[in-house]
Design a protein around this nucleic acid. Structure first.
Lengths: 201, 201
DNA sequence: TGTTTTACCTAACACCGTTAGCAAAGTTAA
DNA sequence: TTAACTTTGCTAACGGTGTTAGGTAAAACA
């Protein structure tokens, strides 16, 4: 009897509509003004229904954080697959990371915004491992083709990531004030070029 | 007649005690749990009194943001004054910036935390100009002693700052998980070394 | 001493996240 | 078909938030 299945399906539909609606609110008003009551209003259910699907508000934000990490991983994979040259791969990855951040500002802020749901706990860090492996491989290749093999690749991975995040954060903070958009692209290229040059020795 | 002066003095004392109390709460419970009512309770005044001194809660946070920028500027100035060698100056500045961030975590998060009072508006950016000038000078010196003088120093300043911020943010997000503390220092040195090497050409 | 300004408070408004408890509907078994 | 049970969804509340309107009592001034 498919009754129980239909029920599960219906429950899943409510869950989905919660996420969809929440995401729409985040996109339109920013995640700071997302509220349980707004979601409930929009999906035309009462407030407590939402708590049948999510433990609390943070769990909803966390869901988006995970979505973001998965989407990012996909984009970075595609970037890496676009070429075989390790240096080119790093450049492509950096570019894809950059584009992801600004084409999905809401995701990025949710994923890395200080003080918010995701990434403060260790829980959600597993989603980062694909990223790590992705970046680590070309770095390792560049190092092995280098004279000075004493370089710590884990350290280099960390540097790469931090540099990326820094460039993006500062641009997001400055928003459209002060620094022109083309300049920001130059800053990215500059930093990544320097990083790769440094890797090659 | 000093009556009006005494009054102003008393009013200033209340203002100061608001800021002191607020800062204590921020240090003890984090800025996310700072509330007007908590401040009012602690200073033993009613809630609306606080609005005689600050337009709203954000204005209080903004005040701390400004304090933070001024303190940072002082620390960086000291760092720069510690040596005459431009490369050494950049290193010292980077070190001081790093230390400031982690010794004054609350300040740093208030200054750069996405979605919070400071630095989303253009208003508070003036406080950043000392930092800019400070970093720009040694960068310019390094460039002029370089063969390839086509390098844009404004771009380099921006890169320097972004890299710094990225390293710090990622460490703050990861907190004490995953990456050891000594490694983080290495990452900083690595990135800044690479940056300076790149500058020298 | 009466008038005006200032300081301060109570009480409210409109939100927020979260939960207890109840009513209605749907499902199952006798 | 009826009775028992489970699920679903609601109302209403609790305790919290930022913010403000309006009134009172004290202080300063004429």
């Amino acid at each position: 009897m498919g009754i129980v299945e239909r029920r599960l399906r219906q429950k899943d539909e409510v869950r989905s509509s919660i996420l969809e609606t929440a995401w729409q609110i985040v996109k339109e008003e920013g995640w700071q003004s997302l509220s349980i009551r707004k979601i409930a209003d929009a999906i035309e259910y009462s407030v407590p229904v939402i708590y049948d699907h999510f433990a609390n508000k943070e769990a909803i934000l966390l869901e988006f954080g995970k979505q973001g990490f998965n989407l990012l991983a996909k984009k970075l994979q595609q970037a890496k697959d676009s070429t075989d040259d390790p240096g080119g791969q790093l450049k492509a990855i950096a570019d894809a990371y950059w584009n992801f951040a600004f084409r999905n500002k809401e995701y990025y802020q949710l994923m890395f915004g200080l003080g918010i749901a995701c990434c403060e706990q260790e829980k959600c860090l597993p989603e980062l491992t694909p990223f790590r492996n992705l970046v680590m491989e070309p770095i390792n290749k560049l190092i092995t083709s280098n004279k000075n093999k004493q370089i710590n690749s884990c350290l280099k991975y960390h540097t790469f990531w931090s540099v990326m995040h820094g460039l993006i954060s500062i641009k997001m903070i400055n928003n459209n004030t002060e620094v022109a958009d083309e300049l920001n692209k130059l800053v990215l290229d500059d930093a990544i070029d320097g990083f790769i040059k440094n890797l090659k020795g």
